[in-house]
Amino acid sequence: MPTTRTTAHRAAVLGSPIAHSLSPVLHRAAYAELGLTHWSYDRFEVTETGLPAFLAGLDPSWAGLSLTMPLKRAVLPLLDTVSPTASSVEAVNTVVIDGDGRRTGDNTDIPGILAALRERGVTTVESAAVLGAGATASSALAALSRICTGPVTAYVRGPARAAEMREWGTRLGVDVRIADWSEAAGALGAPLVIATTPAGATDALAPHVPDRPGTLFDVLYDPWPTPLATAWSVRGGPVVGGLDLLVHQAVLQVELMTGRAPAPLAVMRAAGEHALGTRRA
């Protein structure tokens, strides 16, 4: 972990599209609370093809990067070292740059998922369902490998996605069972449902929420609440949202990049909620 820096240093979130990202709001709120007036945090539109040149152009003032889609896997060959957590899912959402310019890749999504669930009292489950596939779904499986004692059913579209989720299950030591997306309504009876799909993908499932649902973790935060999350709450089920994940993983990023811990969780969450409320107004 880097030591606290006393000269001007930079961090940013990269991805495409990136204009919607709340990361600058969260990180800047943390810097202000921690008194890090010499730190700045921005956002940059960067594609997979543009990532090597962007990294090559960083000067010594850079301390860290947050990565969103489609860069979480594209960055892997451009790093000096990768943490075991990030290696387990071949996905990096955090790059820490030390004083010598060495780039270390990490993944704060996985511990962020666990922290968000723990905040709602979910520390172990007998089974779970994952809606969707891809980088976020693999992070969900990695988190579930630590708290789920039984099978995880993944609801996916197509044989390629099914094969990918089976492979991740084998690598992560999770008993993954595959179901077709057309059967996704059946997922809603699981003790824990993690929805990793894009906006609108789960809207049709809202009428199928059971009378006594378990816990829903919907990784979306804008628009929020989703129709599925709304229906879940109406029926009394606990809901963990994408802002919860975003804040918890950002807390860990701030700590890794600045060397200051603990990062101000409540302040960062309030800043995120305010920013989302402003967008909706």
Results as ranks from 00 to 15, higher is better:
residue 211 D to V: 15
residue 258 T to I: 07
residue 236 G to F: 15
residue 215 T to S: 07
residue 257 M to R: 04
residue 237 G to F: 04
residue 202 T to W: 02
residue 242 G to I: 06
residue 232 W to P: 00
residue 241 G to H: 06
residue 215 T to P: 02
residue 217 F to T: 12
residue 267 V to Q: 07
residue 261 A to M: 11
residue 201 A to L: 11
residue 221 Y to C: 02
residue 270 A to Y: 04
residue 232 W to C: 04
residue 236 G to D: 14
residue 257 M to I: 15
residue 268 M to E: 02
residue 242 G to P: 01
residue 265 L to W: 04
residue 216 L to N: 00
residue 263 A to Q: 02
residue 201 A to R: 04
residue 203 D to N: 09
residue 230 T to P: 03
residue 205 L to M: 08
residue 243 L to T: 12
residue 226 T to S: 14
residue 233 S to M: 12
residue 229 A to P: 04
residue 229 A to I: 06
residue 228 L to M: 05
residue 212 R to P: 07
residue 205 L to F: 01
residue 230 T to Y: 09
residue 224 W to A: 10
residue 204 A to H: 15
residue 214 G to M: 09
residue 231 A to S: 06
residue 237 G to E: 03
residue 230 T to H: 10
residue 202 T to V: 12
residue 218 D to V: 02
residue 200 G to K: 01
residue 243 L to G: 09
residue 236 G to L: 15
residue 259 G to E: 03
residue 246 L to K: 00
residue 200 G to C: 14
residue 209 V to K: 10
residue 239 V to L: 13
residue 265 L to H: 15
residue 242 G to L: 12
residue 260 R to I: 13
residue 256 L to H: 05
residue 263 A to I: 03
residue 233 S to L: 14
residue 221 Y to F: 09
residue 256 L to F: 03
residue 201 A to V: 13
residue 244 D to P: 07
residue 249 Q to K: 10
residue 225 P to R: 04
residue 233 S to P: 09
residue 256 L to N: 04
residue 207 P to T: 12
residue 222 D to M: 03
residue 232 W to V: 00
residue 268 M to Y: 03
residue 210 P to W: 06
residue 238 P to G: 01
residue 209 V to P: 08
residue 235 R to K: 15
residue 225 P to W: 04
residue 255 E to Y: 10
residue 205 L to S: 03
residue 255 E to M: 13
residue 222 D to Y: 12
residue 252 L to D: 14
residue 222 D to K: 06
residue 251 V to I: 13
residue 223 P to A: 00
residue 208 H to N: 14
residue 267 V to N: 08
residue 231 A to R: 00
residue 226 T to P: 14
residue 234 V to H: 14
residue 272 G to S: 10
residue 218 D to H: 01
residue 230 T to A: 15
residue 233 S to C: 06
residue 259 G to T: 09
residue 230 T to D: 13
residue 259 G to L: 09
residue 212 R to I: 14
residue 269 R to F: 05
residue 216 L to E: 06
residue 258 T to V: 06
residue 264 P to T: 06
residue 230 T to K: 10
residue 219 V to A: 15
residue 220 L to W: 04
residue 268 M to Q: 11
residue 228 L to E: 08
residue 253 Q to A: 10
residue 252 L to T: 12
residue 229 A to D: 11
residue 231 A to K: 00
residue 238 P to N: 07
residue 229 A to Y: 03
residue 266 A to V: 15
residue 200 G to R: 01
residue 220 L to P: 01
residue 240 V to A: 10
residue 251 V to F: 00
residue 206 A to F: 15
residue 228 L to S: 03
residue 267 V to R: 08
residue 220 L to A: 07
residue 215 T to W: 05
residue 203 D to G: 09
residue 252 L to V: 10
residue 231 A to W: 00
residue 228 L to C: 02
residue 258 T to H: 08
